[in-house]
């Protein structure tokens, strides 16, 4: 016997919501999914009328669904937003050039203007070239740091008021667990915040409208809406440690589906003891980007690449920052420590 939709009680249910366990028909699921994102946007006051919003688009499922839903909601509820797609080309052959094709198709399908910024034009290095020097370990550090800044730089070029990214509930929960495992109290404190402060100098506020959307529901939404997205793992090996956290989250979800939201709830209710040292936000003395050190991570990584010492930005080498700033050479001993280790 077919199961009835628990919402409209008329149509036949086609799916069971991973988040709540309710059986819904296609129409009601779309409605609920979109409505929840609308609620998130309204209750967290993510946007103001007349703003230009850049959507970080990778061509993957999260950003594809984000772009689609934002466009739908912008029209349905008349947010009065100007939406743009913003992509970063890391220069990874066999991965990014394919996914950028998807973004280009999205541009036409959703009729949203697209801008692509590339690592090569911003930093003079493609990820392929970086991996050639760094090796397969730690290359995600470069990619992650550079992407964050590339997105900001692209947004600044386009004069965007806000950037939104496709981080979903699973991503946020995973980050909470990761930060507990790493003991990174400052990030643990920040990672569940839906939108970064808008008063920060030099940085464009970012937000995560899909923060409360389960990854599985995003896939279900894309599947039933027949959205065109790209789903291939990056060719450079994924971060092993994060993989453990990811598996853990998936296992938790299997034991108790609400676990993802429960972790986010935990994260939202944490606070740091008084007297615990927290990094102070400043600006990089070289490029002017936000940084807690005298040099931002991206400048240190770049310096390491240009000097042929890729490990300069891996781990903590704050003591060397003065030398980098003064353009001094490093001692032999320091250099040896920072060269790539071949396996």
């Amino acid at each position: 016997m077919p199961i009835q939709c628990s919402s409209c009680a008329k149509n036949r249910a086609v799916l069971r919501r991973p988040k709540t366990g309710h059986s819904l028909c296609k129409h009601c699921f779309f409605w609920a999914f979109e409505e929840e994102i609308h609620q998130t946007i309204v209750s967290a006051r993510l946007f103001n009328r007349g703003e230009t919003v850049g959507i970080g688009a990778s061509g993957g499922k999260d950003s594809t669904v984000l772009a689609y839903v934002l466009k739908v909601l912008n029209e349905r509820y008349d947010y009065g937003l100007k939406l743009l797609l913003l992509s970063v080309d890391e220069g990874i052959t066999g991965y990014r050039n394919d996914s950028l094709e998807t973004v280009r198709r999205n541009q036409q399908q959703y009729d949203l203007p697209l801008t692509i910024v590339s690592y090569e034009e911003l930093y003079g290095w493609t990820m392929d070239a970086i991996v050639k020097q760094v090796g397969l370990r730690n290359n995600c550090t470069f990619c992650g740091v550079f992407r964050r800044q590339a997105l900001d730089r692209g947004a600044m070029m386009l004069n965007v008021d806000k950037i939104c990214t496709g981080h979903n509930a699973d991503d946020v929960a995973e980050t909470v667990i990761m930060n507990v495992l790493r003991g990174d109290i400052a990030r643990l404190h920040r990672c569940t915040v839906i939108s970064t402060a808008s008063d920060g100098e030099g940085a464009i506020p970012r937000c995560k409208p899909l923060k409360y959307a389960y990854e599985k529901e995003i896939v279900l939404y894309a599947y039933f809406k027949k959205l065109d997205y790209f789903s291939t793992e990056c060719v450079y090996s994924p971060n092993a440690y994060r993989g453990h956290a990811r598996t853990f989250i998936k296992d938790l979800e299997a034991v108790r589906p609400s676990a993802i939201m429960d972790i986010i709830h935990s994260g939202e209710n944490l606070s740091v003891k008084e007297g615990v040292k927290m990094p102070v936000q400043g600006t990089c003395s070289r490029c002017g980007y936000i940084s807690s050190q005298s040099l931002c991570k991206s400048c240190v990584l770049l310096e390491g690449l240009n000097r042929g010492l890729p490990k300069l930005g891996i781990g903590k080498h704050h003591r060397l920052h003065d030398k980098i700033l003064a353009q001094q050479a490093l001692t032999e001993k320091e250099q040896n420590k920072l060269k790539a280790i071949e396996f």
């Binding site: 628990s6 919402s7 409209c8 009680a9 919501r17 988040k19 709540t20 309710h22 819904l24 009601c28 409605w31 609920a32 409505e35 929840e36 609620q39 998130t40 209750s43 967290a44 839906i194 409360y212 609400s258 939201m261 429960d262 986010i264 709830h265 939202e268 209710n269």
Partner: peptide, 28 residues
């Protein structure tokens, strides 16, 4: 108690999801 019904929290989002998947379209 950590269940204050504030805007834009995971707690609220969960309540929202449950309600949206349960009630009829008119009530929504």
């Amino acid at each position: 108690l950590d269940t204050r019904a504030e805007d834009a929290t995971a707690f609220n989002a969960t309540l929202m999801s449950e309600q949206l998947s349960r009630c009829t379209l008119e009530e929504k």
